[in-house]
Simulated assay, not measured.
Amino acid sequence: MTSRSQVRRLLADGLGYEEAGRRLGVPAGKTFLIATGLPADGGGTLTTAEQHRPGMPGRSTEHLAGPPAVNPTSDDATRHWLRLRAVADGPMRRAARERGVRPEGERAPDDVRDLTDVLTHDHDRLTALVKQLQTLPGTGQGATEAQQRRGRAVADVLAGTPASHAPAERRGLWPLVREALDDGGRAADRALEQDDEEARTRAELRRTPPDDEDFDALAERVGAQVRRHIAFADAVFARLRETVPQDVRERLGAEVVRAWRDGPPPPGAQEAPP
């Protein structure tokens, strides 16, 4: 059994409680308790006499009380165990296979008419896809082949979904912004630059295999770009609701919804300039 004199002798030699405990084969918190008779977690209020007991350091001792923090999900053995459990779980594997990859919810519910609400609703669907992609483990996190395939499928849908969302904004939103807001031209130009940058990243993500280390970084970049686009659009929407009559917003919203339901324009059709 470790004695108080053993601990205090090591402390007198200049060792800290962690090193003293390591040499004695005793946890640091217990070493402190042996030396001082006090718990290392600092519970309660110490009297003046307790504060000056032999072995009391001049700083907090709470770090001695608990074991070092460990993240079990970063351990190779834990990841291997989780993979084995996932493979053995038949119902979960079947549910994963049957679950389709698609944006959540209806794109244009009947009770959503205002242009700003229509586009906000579609933004929510894009956000849900980004969350699906970013909750999947990446190659650097030990993703299984099934998880990589899932990531590929979500990335493809995420890359294709804005194919009709961005044109809707170019035809219905940004021309309105240019006309209705004092700084609308600058706002529209900035938004279109963001759209072009985001489109390039999505195209690069679509070309990158899911087992490539760049896939994870591209997925993170797409998520950041989508969030930036939505935050910027939300600020513009708030200003449009204050300056543009509701009937105008609803008319433009109906045009966007009708275009979505009718499908993309025929090949070779010219899109109106933003």
Rank of each mutant, 00 (worst) to 15 (best):
M1V: 06
S3F: 05
S5I: 12
L10W: 08
E18P: 00
A20W: 06
L24E: 04
K30C: 02
T31R: 07
F32I: 14
I34L: 15
P39I: 01
G43Q: 03
T45P: 00
T47L: 01
E50F: 13
Q51V: 00
G55L: 08
A65L: 04
G66Y: 10
G66W: 08
P67I: 07
P67W: 13
P68W: 05
N71L: 09
P72S: 02
T73P: 00
S74Q: 14
H80F: 06
H80C: 03
W81T: 12
L82E: 12
V87N: 08
D89A: 14
D89P: 05
R93S: 12
A95D: 11
A95M: 10
A95I: 06
R97Q: 13
E98I: 04
V101N: 08
P103E: 10
P103D: 07
P103R: 11
E106R: 14
E106N: 04
E106Y: 04
R107N: 02
V112F: 00
D114V: 04
L115V: 04
H121E: 07
D122F: 00
D124E: 13
L126G: 11
L126E: 13
T127R: 12
T127I: 11
L129V: 08
L129H: 02
L133D: 02
L136V: 10
P137V: 14
G138N: 05
G138E: 06
G142I: 03
A143E: 10
T144E: 14
Q148V: 07
Q148G: 14
G151T: 06
G151R: 15
V154K: 08
V154G: 10
L158C: 06
S164M: 15
S164G: 05
S164A: 13
A166R: 11
P167N: 10
P167H: 07
P167Y: 08
A168C: 01
A168D: 15
R171C: 03
R171A: 15
G172Y: 09
W174E: 05
R178V: 04
D182F: 06
D182G: 10
T208E: 06
D212F: 01
F215C: 03
D216T: 15
L218Y: 12
R228L: 08
H229C: 00
I230Y: 05
A233R: 15
V236W: 09
A238S: 13
L240C: 11
E242M: 11
V244F: 03
P245T: 14
P245M: 02
Q246T: 15
V248M: 09
R249F: 01
G253Q: 09
A254F: 00
E255Q: 15
V256A: 04
V256R: 06
A259P: 01
W260K: 05
R261K: 10
G263E: 01
P264H: 09
P264Y: 12
P264I: 07
A269I: 03
Q270W: 05
E271Y: 11
A272E: 13
A272I: 03
P273H: 11
P273D: 14
P273Y: 03
